[in-house]
Design a protein around this nucleic acid. Sequence first.
DNA 1: ATATATTTGCAACATTGTTTCATTTGAAAA
DNA 2: TTTTCAAATGAAACAATGTTGCAAATATAT
Lengths: 139, 139
Amino acid sequence: MNATDILKLHNIKKTAGRLAIINALQESTCPLSENEIKELMLESYDRITFYRNIQTLTAVGIIHKIVVDNTLIRYGLNCCETVHEHSAHRNTHAHFYCEQCHSVVCLQEVKIPEFCLPEGFISADSDIIIKGKCEKCNH
Amino acid sequence: MNATDILKLHNIKKTAGRLAIINALQESTCPLSENEIKELMLESYDRITFYRNIQTLTAVGIIHKIVVDNTLIRYGLNCCETVHEHSAHRNTHAHFYCEQCHSVVCLQEVKIPEFCLPEGFISADSDIIIKGKCEKCNH
DNA sequence: ATATATTTGCAACATTGTTTCATTTGAAAA
DNA sequence: TTTTCAAATGAAACAATGTTGCAAATATAT
């Protein structure tokens, strides 16, 4: 699905900045950092607008933010098939962070389980970050 | 165990800043933010030294850092019994973040499972953050 | 008590994220 | 097509967060 249609589907305005972010993420097989997206956006990148668009795109469920560490953040495009799940703001899968090449991979196969919580606690969403060595780095 | 002994056990120097951080965390039942620790440290707080000590204390396994979001970080004291596990830098339990009162709770009972990863991926450590409403906020 | 490696605290800087507000623009209606 | 208006942009200014170099101070072992 192209960027224009994705925006239309979520009822938010089609703007240069948003299209550029979505296109950048579509060009990649894995989630990207702000700087990586910035490189791909070329002249259409503006830092303030970027933050605001990331906010909006996350809020409507077009992308998701992966916080590996406070100084290590990635943004990933949601699959169109899972749009409805995401618009309910629930993570569906775990993320993998490779400590060697610093890439982040969406592990679509590794689903978020229901955790058994102590009495009184109610879960709305969970983040799972698995750290280690990715397939490419395991020679 | 008191702060002095904890430092000695891990073979790092006993300094005012480190003792103050450990004491602050021992006064609390749950992990604290930098500002919360700062309040408890009083005049012995220095921002740069704080960051460096957090680094050191984390590296030797006295405390652990919980990154709920890039702008929402907590530091928790490790239990002495689990010191050996922690010095191997492996998380043992999941963390809960209450979206209402913004507190973080160590869910000692909720152990980190072994995730079934795709071919080629090797896990060294995992972070699990469960978000929702804590017992206190569920009236 | 002394020696020495570690730690501290300051200055200065770099990065990251937010708010306000005037201007521009997308998209719907006339 | 032109008009209209809420939404989005981008600049300035700020706030918070995190890092590095370096001289002075200090914890521990001898």
